Simulated scan of single mutants.
Amino acid sequence: MLTDPSVLLSSPLFQGLSTKDTISLLQCISVNRKKFSQGEVIFLSGEPINRIGVILQGSITIIKEDFSGNRSILAEFVKGNIFGEAFAFSNNEKLSVTAISASESEILFIDANRIFTFCASACPYHSRLIENMLKIIAKKNIVLNEKIDVLSKRTIRNRLLSFLQIQSQKNDSNHFSIPFNRQELADYLCVDRSALSNEMSKLQNEGFFSVSKNEFTIYSSKGNK
């Protein structure tokens, strides 16, 4: 049990719940927490899971590796985010991805079966938990569709520009930061890092955008700085 359940109130899963309601809810569902070192595996591809994770501290990366060991980053999650729900709710479906702690982290694990199973008192805060979970799943489906759209582009240039356009729209600004370094961005776009760097240099020279580390400024029209 958490000594301070208020740490969960920033998570979308517990949105709309008071500290008192959260305490009652944690007594209703089965939870435990664990700390992980940077690079430590949380969930391993090929294994079934029956619990979801809520990030209390740190961040995690969801990756997929092919038979040659090539790695693709599918998602990055930070404090307050949840992960693992798609497989935890899929009736022992084996993981096709691996969840790795991207930094020193602490995870609260929740038994997936207890989320959609009402307690005897049918408490209203449990209903809110289910509503929040459905909203989270819906939003993640939108993110998945965004990545499918990016990867549907045949060239590195078009994948990168499509990704940056989505980030600009999300931030409602032409200036924004992305949650990836250069290698992680290459993994996300499923391209070679060197080829990505070359294409980024060309696009900068052509006036499409400027970049400093992970901060981008997109120009409204080519060469319009």
Rank of each mutant, 00 (worst) to 15 (best):
G80H: 04
C123A: 15
S24W: 00
I142P: 03
F83N: 02
G207I: 12
S11P: 04
R71N: 12
K94I: 13
I49D: 00
S101V: 11
K225E: 07
I29P: 03
F77C: 08
Q183G: 04
K34F: 02
S194H: 09
Q15W: 01
K153F: 03
S127N: 13
I100C: 08
H175S: 12
S127F: 06
I42L: 12
I115A: 00
E199T: 15
E146R: 10
E65D: 08
K139C: 06
V54P: 00
N224M: 13
I166M: 11
E184S: 11
F176L: 07
I52C: 08
F14I: 05
A88C: 14
K140S: 04
F176W: 04
N181Q: 08
S18R: 08
I100F: 01
H175G: 04
S212H: 09
S59W: 05
N198E: 14
E199L: 07
A112S: 14
N214A: 05
N141E: 10
N224G: 04
Q38C: 08
I130M: 13
N141K: 12
L151D: 14
T98G: 05
K35F: 02
I178Y: 02
S162K: 15
S45R: 13
A138S: 11
K140G: 06
I148A: 05
S90Y: 06
S6G: 01
S121V: 09
N50R: 11
F180D: 07
K153E: 15
K170T: 13
V41Q: 09
I110T: 06
A120V: 13
E199V: 15
D21L: 04
Q167A: 08
E76D: 13
L151W: 06
V7W: 00
L161A: 06
I55S: 01
I23L: 08
A75S: 12
I137Y: 03
I137L: 12
E47M: 09
D111Y: 04
K20I: 02
N205M: 14
R154K: 15
I49H: 03
L2W: 02
L9S: 06
I100W: 01
N145I: 07
I137G: 07
C119V: 12
A75V: 13
E65C: 06
S168K: 11
F180S: 05
I110S: 00
A122V: 15
F216N: 03
R182Q: 14
N32K: 09
I52G: 10
A186R: 00
T98H: 03
